[in-house]
Simulated assay, not measured.
Amino acid sequence: MTEETTQQGEDLREQTAEAAPEVAAHDRVAELEAQLAEARQATLYAQAEIQNVRRRAEKEAADARQYAATSFARDILSVADNLGRGLAAMPAELRADDKMKGLVGGLEATGRELDGVFARHGITKIAALGETLDPNRHQAMLEVPSDEPAGTIVQEMQAGYMIKDRLLRPALVGVAKAAG
């Protein structure tokens, strides 16, 4: 090799050595920018997940407050049913008796108060008679031959109730079937 070739090789090595730190620094900056973008994206996902968890927790808490009385309400419905059956079974002559008027009036007032408590807590009676059977609100117990269109509720054996927008207890009903 000639001296000139050797000199050119050394110059080339020097240029490459000078350029290498710039290339390495540029690669390092690009790598750090990519890591920063990835960290920002992960932060956004984490914030979105936290917001979703918070919303779910708020909804569950609201549902718990709104429907907390569901179990108690189911239990008290049997009391309301028995009170209603007792009043309905009382003969008219007993209702007219002066000795029984206080008792009858007290039982009727208790029934009205119970209805008022139900209303304050969002418990409503499900309409049944004359309605078309809705399996989400009514439970068909029997079919009755009738002139009514098939599927129409013609008899109610037990009232159904809703608590706000949820079924508390389905109405037990008799449904019309085609005569013949």
Rank of each mutant, 00 (worst) to 15 (best):
M1E: 14
E4C: 02
T5F: 12
Q7C: 00
Q7F: 04
D11V: 11
R13H: 15
E14T: 12
E22F: 04
V23W: 00
A24Q: 10
A24C: 03
H26S: 07
D27Y: 08
A30N: 11
L32W: 12
E33H: 05
L36A: 15
L36N: 08
E38W: 06
A39R: 10
Q41N: 11
L44W: 06
L44A: 13
A46S: 12
A46L: 13
E49N: 10
R55Q: 09
A57Q: 13
A57N: 11
E58Q: 13
K59Y: 10
D63W: 08
Q66C: 06
D75L: 12
I76A: 11
L77R: 04
A80F: 13
D81R: 10
L83C: 07
R85C: 03
R85N: 15
G86C: 07
A88R: 14
A89E: 15
M90S: 14
M90P: 08
P91I: 01
P91V: 00
E93A: 14
L94R: 13
R95V: 09
A96R: 11
D98M: 05
M100C: 09
K101C: 02
G102V: 09
V104E: 08
V104T: 09
G105N: 15
G106F: 07
G106H: 03
E108R: 08
A109F: 07
A109I: 01
T110M: 14
G111F: 15
E113D: 13
L114P: 05
D115K: 09
G116W: 09
G116F: 06
G116R: 15
V117F: 08
I123G: 04
T124N: 14
I126G: 05
A127E: 15
L129G: 09
T132P: 12
T132L: 10
L133Y: 00
D134P: 02
R137G: 04
R137I: 05
R137S: 10
H138R: 00
A140V: 06
L142H: 06
E143V: 07
E143T: 11
P145G: 00
P149F: 05
P149Q: 09
A150G: 02
T152G: 06
I153Y: 09
I153E: 00
I153G: 01
V154H: 07
Q155G: 03
Q155I: 05
Y161S: 01
M162D: 11
D165C: 00
D165R: 04
L167I: 04
L168A: 02
R169A: 06
A171P: 01
V173Q: 00
V173R: 00
V175T: 04
A179F: 02
G180H: 00
G180I: 02
G180K: 01
